[in-house]
Design a protein around this nucleic acid. Structure first.
Length: 422
RNA sequence: GGAGAGGUGGCAGAGUGGUCGAAUGCAUCGGUCUUGAAAACCGAAGUGUCUUAACGGGCACCGGGGGUUCGAAUCCCCCCUUCUCCGCCA
């Protein structure tokens, strides 16, 4: 969340940045609440101080055998006063907290302004969209034909947007996961994790999914547990409510997990194929670092994700999201988009965001600064490295041959234990 | 799931109604001593929040929430969690 102190001190600056994201956003209404809240705190603190002193006095007098009835009655009344103020105080605290939890991050100064994706900026393009002398079959057709995917039975055993991988399809998916993890751990310095796939509401709040996006998530009925929509949630919250040593930073973490999203509100979008599933596999990259290095670490992390696309020889673009297209918790974001012949378009396959201290403040992830020896909020960064199902689809299409076979990119062949799907 | 015992500062561990933000030990940091180091000795040191130009000061925090009381780490209730035993089980 945003820092209330900064809001207090620089309301115009913060409003201006938020309005780049959405003109309707404003922190104005919280300023008065904050002021009132602080006034009440001063009042209550003073009364509590009085009560403390008087109570101690009573203790002393009683020891001396003196009558304290009158003083006790006075303190009792002070107690009632405190209670009344505390009630109002709690109400305002709650209001402020809710407000802050529902306000998105302020965009970075460098994030290009704009209201929707049309204002996104293409930063680079690598590889050329495959021009082939035959018609490339969409991955859902070729996947079904080759017995790699079973959409209908996936729907039968679950519901729509659930798919079964089968035979060489399942093996290709597994090969991709292992390939991604090996590159990131062996070449990019990430530590591999296997976190829980169900997390509590505190974790979901820490990374920003709650309270605003509850309807996007699968929730357990009996427990305070949600299926993770991304490994970002468990990984980022590993160090919530902790103070790390500055020497421990930067911290690089990666994990393969399935991801679960209700996709409420995407009815009718990408209904065919693997692009938009309720359950999909993803390898996630997460970093914690100091504010001084976060911009640089963000660039590096994005490069780590790009490396995978390059090794797989898939054509892609790097796009910088404009302020209006930014995710809720992000202040700066690059999307990687892979060429998808079936839609004759580039489709998002990774999203690499810098959150500044926004998540760290929500989840209380701090490090002790060597310079000041005081706890400071860390910066968090994450990105997909990559979405596995979408990579699977991209390979089925981009690597498709005229005879319908799929040539496995050479870097992946050892993982797939084969060079081709016939 | 059942029974029992716990949850206190970075760690270990005391404290069962008042002067306790909390003894003590270890670890940490600064200093003295030393050619250097160790040892010894002296000293510093939690987190949050409010207030102040600043120095400083106030308040809160002993797993979380509520209650009793003039006063709660300490008493009561609920929840979470750890350990041990039993049950179940991949």
């Amino acid at each position: 969340m945003l820092d209330i102190k900064q809001i207090r001190e620089n309301p115009d600056k913060i409003n201006e940045l938020l309005k780049r994201r959405n003109p309707e956003l404003s922190i104005d209404e919280i300023i008065e609440v904050d002021k009132e809240r602080r006034e009440l705190q001063v009042k209550a603190d003073n009364l509590r101080s009085q009560r403390k002193n008087s109570s101690q006095e009573i203790g002393k007098l009683k020891k001396e055998g003196q009558n304290t009835d009158e003083l006790q009655e006075k303190v009792r009344q002070t107690g009632e006063e405190i209670k009344a103020i505390e009630e109002k105080e709690n109400e305002l605290n709650e209001k402020q907290k809710n407000f802050l939890l529902n306000i998105p991050n302020a965009p970075d100064e460098s994030t290009p302004p704009g209201t929707d994706e049309s204002a996104n900026v293409i930063l680079k393009t690598r590889g050329k969209p495959s021009q082939k002398p035959f018609e490339i079959k969409p991955h859902w057709d070729i996947g079904l034909e080759k017995g790699l995917l079973d959409f209908e039975r996936g729907v039968k055993i679950s519901e729509s947007r659930f798919t079964i991988y089968k035979g060489e399809g399942a093996r290709l998916e597994r090969a991709l996961i292992n390939f991604f993890l090996d590159i990131h751990t062996k070449q990019h310095g990430y530590t591999e994790y296997m976190p829980p796939y169900l997390v509590n509401s505190a974790s979901m709040t820490g990374t920003g999914q709650l309270p605003k996006f509850r309807e996007d998530m699968y929730k357990c009925e009996e427990e305070d547990l949600f299926l993770i929509p991304t490994a970002e949630v468990p990984l980022t919250n590993i160090y919530s409510d902790e103070i790390l040593k500055e020497e421990d930073l930067p911290l690089y973490m990666t994990a393969y997990t399935p991801c679960f999203r209700r996709e409420a509100g995407s009815a009718g979008k990408d209904t065919r194929g693997l692009i938009r599933q309720h359950q999909f596999n993803k390898v996630e990259l997460v970093k914690f670092c100091t504010p001084q290095t976060s911009a640089e670490e963000h660039e590096k992390l994005t490069g780590d994700a790009e490396k995978i696309l390059e090794l797989l020889e898939l054509p892609y673009k790097r796009v910088e999201l404009c302020t209006g297209d930014l995710g809720f918790s992000a202040k700066k974001c690059y999307d990687l988009e892979v060429w998808m012949p079936s839609s004759q378009a580039y489709r998002e396959i990774s999203s690499c965001s810098n959150f500044g201290d926004y998540q760290a403040r929500r989840a209380s992830i701090r490090y002790r600064s060597k310079e000041t020896n005081k706890p400071e909020f860390a910066h968090t960064i994450n990105g997909s490295g990559l979405a596995v199902g979408r990579t699977f689809a991209a390979i089925l299409e981009n690597c498709q041959q005229e005879d319908g076979s799929i040539v496995i990119p050479s870097a992946l062949q050892p993982y797939f234990a084969g060079d081709k799907i016939k």
